[in-house]
């Protein structure tokens, strides 16, 4: 099974480091491996650090963090040798990196697969940055490459709707508002064991989850396509379904990006979807998924 990799992109000051620290504090039992690049520093909160070994730092909860300098592939190879194996890799891309290029590199590394691209923007500065003489097109290209956009620091702007509208003009990805980089790990990371979101109430309260049983056989590709369709308000969905022939499949969706992989025969069938309260349409999701059910052969 390939290790899932989430790429966190976004220009300087967007809050990537804050978000990574939030994920480490609220990993919910997941062993995260975090690779950071910006300026080559390791900007992890001191109180999270348990031990240091060269470039690798052990963080509370079995997580590790590593500054990869200018050779990401080599750092990834080091991660592959870790025991115990991490559950999920988070790469904090540099401020000028195009996250799709990072994802392209990850897709070529044995043992890893891209889970999704999350691009952070600072609600206060995104309009100015997008108009920057040198960096403007880098900022807008980053947005266009996102599976999910986290609009951070929304508490600092007078008119969040206007900023959201501006960002929407540069991306087709769903936009998740956040303050202080606080986004539930279940939205950003692959593994979430149950539909209960963990994290501080003010963070999780804006999200809705839906559990969908999958006792009847389903077409896995059709199911994934439904979960990834734009009109249902789903930010992330995952689960296991059984096809008409009785084979199990794992489904993973990060907004519009969907993947279907073979799964163990004893996988616990069922799907979970997460979305934002104001756009998440549970009845519509149920109805759409019913269309993906197939007859048992």
């Amino acid at each position: 099974m390939n290790l899932p990799v989430t790429i966190i992109g976004g220009y300087l000051g967007a809050g990537k480091t804050t978000l990574v620290n939030y994920l480490l504090r609220n990993a919910g039992g997941l062993r995260l491996a975090v690779l950071v690049n910006e300026f080559g520093t390791l900007p992890i909160d001191e109180h999270l650090i348990e031990a240091r070994d060269g470039r690798m730092v052990s963080v509370v909860g079995g997580c590790v963090c590593c500054a990869y300098g200018d050779d990401m592939a080599a750092a990834m190879m080091d991660l592959r040798r870790l025991a115990p194996r991490p559950d999920h890799v988070v790469i904090e891309a540099s401020g000028v990196a195009l996250p799709a290029s990072v994802a392209g590199t990850v897709s070529l590394l044995q043992g890893f697969s891209v889970d999704g691209i999350v691009v952070l923007v600072d609600a206060e500065t995104v309009q100015g940055n997008a108009a920057h003489k040198y960096m403007g097109d880098t900022v807008t290209r980053q947005l266009a490459q996102a599976d999910l956009v986290v609009l951070n620091k929304t508490d600092l702007v007078a008119d969040p709707a206007a900023v959201t509208g501006f960002v929407q003009g540069h991306t087709s990805a769903p936009i998740v508002p956040a303050t202080g980089g606080e986004v539930p790990s279940a939205v950003l990371l692959r593994a979430f064991p149950n539909p209960t979101l963990t994290g501080p109430a003010h963070v999780v309260s804006v999200y809705r989850t839906l559990s969908i049983p999958a006792d009847t056989p389903m077409d896995p590709r059709a199911t994934a396509a439904v979960l990834a369709s734009a009109d249902l308000g789903i930010l992330r969905a995952k689960g296991f379904v059984q096809d008409a022939a009785g084979r199990c499949h794992a489904i993973q969706c990060v907004a519009r990006r969907a993947s279907v992989m073979p799964a163990a025969p004893d996988a616990s069938l069922g799907l979970v979807a997460i979305g934002l309260g104001d756009t998440f349409d549970a009845p519509k999701i149920r109805a759409a998924l019913a269309m993906a059910c197939v007859a048992r052969v």
Partner: peptide, 27 residues
Amino acid sequence: GISHPGIPLGTDGLPTGELRGPDAYLP
């Protein structure tokens, strides 16, 4: 199933062997 802008695929769906850009060829 490789999907990378620097890796053209042949009619057989496998890479042609030309890898464009350090991102693609460094691995």
